[in-house]
C-alpha cells in the first residue's frame, strides 16, 4: 500500500447520517473476489433502481471523479466487513470527512489507505453547505491534520498511530514480524502462567 501526505480531489457532500456498512455494500455482493473490483457495489441500493440503473437524483451519480466524501454522523457503523472500505477505495474515494465513524470501519479504512477524517459537526455542516450546489476541490494535509475548501480551513482528528501508518503506507504484518522475539517470549510466559488458555482438546 502506498503512503500519502497530501491529497487534492473533488469533494461531494453526502449529508446523510448513519450510512452503515450494509448501505456501503449490501451483503449479497460480498462473495465476489476483490480482483473484480468493488467500486460498482458502492452504496448500491441507494444509487441504483430495481433494474440496476443509476438513479439521477442521487448526488454521487450526478458527478464523476469524486475522491472525497463529506458525510454525516456515524459513517460506516455496523459490520466489520472490510468490503465496505474496498467499495469506497475501488470507486476512487481517498478520504471521508464526517463527525464520527464506526470504530471497526475506521480501523479498516486505515488499513487500506483511506482517511477517516473526523471533523466537528458544525464544521462538517459548513463544508456541506459550501458544497451544496456542486462538488469542489478540497486539499488535505495529513501531517498538519488540515483540510481546505476555498477559504474554509478546518482541522481534523486522527489517531497519531493511524496518521503515521497512512503517511508511510505501512503494512502491519511486516511491522509485526520485526517483533517476533517479543511475541515468542509472551507466548512462552502465557503458556507457563495460563496453560488453561490453550484448548483442552487437540484439533
Amino acid at each position: 500500500m502506498a503512503g500519502w501526505s497530501t491529497q487534492k480531489g473533488h469533494a461531494l457532500a453526502l449529508a446523510i447520517d448513519n450510512i452503515d456498512t450494509d448501505q456501503l455494500i449490501p451483503a449479497r455482493f460480498m462473495s465476489a473476489p476483490r480482483s473484480e473490483g468493488y467500486g460498482q457495489y458502492l452504496l448500491h441500493d441507494m444509487r441504483r433502481d430495481d433494474d440496476e440503473q443509476l438513479t439521477a437524483d442521487f448526488p454521487l451519480n450526478r458527478h464523476e471523479g469524486i475522491s472525497i466524501l463529506v458525510a454525516g454522523h456515524n459513517f460506516g457503523s455496523g459490520s466489520s466487513r472490510e468490503a465496505a472500505v474496498y467499495a469506497l477505495v475501488d470507486a476512487g474515494i481517498r478520504a471521508v470527512i464526517a463527525p464520527s465513524f464506526g470504530d471497526i470501519f475506521a480501523n479498516n479504512a486505515i488499513n487500506n489507505g483511506l482517511l477517516p477524517a473526523q471533523v466537528d459537526a458544525q464544521k462538517v455542516m459548513q463544508l456541506q453547505h459550501a458544497l451544496k450546489d456542486a462538488p469542489a476541490q478540497v486539499s488535505i494535509d495529513l501531517p498538519e491534520s488540515r483540510l481546505t475548501l476555498g477559504d474554509i480551513t478546518v482541522t481534523f482528528e486522527l489517531d497519531e498511530g493511524w496518521r503515521v501508518k497512512l503517511i508511510n503506507g505501512w503494512d502491519d504484518i511486516d511491522l509485526t514480524r520485526q517483533h517476533m522475539q517479543a511475541i515468542g517470549a509472551h507466548r512462552k510466559n502465557r503458556n507457563k502462567a495460563a496453560p488453561w488458555a490453550w484448548p483442552n482438546k487437540p484439533n
Binding site: I173, R177, R187
Partner: peptide, 16 residues
C-alpha cells in the same frame, strides 16, 4: 476485526 486484521492475526497471532 476487518480482513486486513484477520490476515494479521493468522500470520502473527497478534493484533495492533
Amino acid at each position: 476485526i476487518g480482513a486486513t486484521e484477520v490476515a494479521h492475526v493468522l500470520a502473527t497471532q497478534t493484533v495492533w
